[in-house]
């Protein structure tokens, strides 16, 4: 081992190669980091105002903006508009392929038009291709404002 010598040319080639490699890595690393965007300011949203009391009648739903994504607020059939317990709120992003869902007053279900996915008023899948339930939000009423927050309901 001690007698083995690396030829000078090879040594220089290794050094040059390592130097170019290091330069390449030092150039590509910032670029790779740069092209991945930092977390958007909206995605950390934990609580938003989804509407006013009295805006929804029983058996009605509306889409609201929750950070950068849509959410859906529903006043359950026969529910009292002034009671937070009468409402249900979920992310409006279907768990199948990210379409925006809607509330169907005729069948009293949340429905995704893209591939005919049905969810009940607890967000559970009733039928269709969605693999998971819709993520539920917590509803609270302060004054006449309906607040929806992402803490577990």
């Amino acid at each position: 081992m001690a007698d083995e010598k690396i030829p000078r040319r090879d040594a220089i080639n290794y050094l040059l190669g390592a130097g170019i490699g290091a330069l390449g890595a030092a150039t590509l690393y910032p670029i790779a980091r740069y092209i991945i965007p930092p977390p958007a300011s909206g995605s950390g949203t934990s609580s938003v105002s989804a509407g006013k009391v009295g805006e929804l009648k029983p058996n009605e739903g509306k889409i609201f903006k929750f950070g950068n994504a849509p959410g859906i607020l529903i006043l359950k059939p026969g529910g009292d508009p002034a009671s937070a317990l009468s409402y249900a709120a979920f992310t409006a992003v279907c768990t199948h392929l990210n379409c925006t869902v809607q509330y169907r007053t005729d069948i009293k279900e949340i429905w995704c038009a893209c591939h005919n996915g049905h969810f009940d008023l607890n967000g559970k899948v009733i039928s269709g291709p969605p693999p998971e339930a819709l993520r539920e939000f917590r509803v609270a009423i302060k004054g006449d404002e309906i607040f929806v927050s992402s803490e577990e309901a």
Binding site: P30, I31, R33, Y34, I36, P37, P38
Partner: peptide, 9 residues
């Protein structure tokens, strides 16, 4: 200010 290495680019 926000994007990693954005100031550099």
């Amino acid at each position: 200010t926000e994007v990693p290495f954005g100031w550099l680019i």
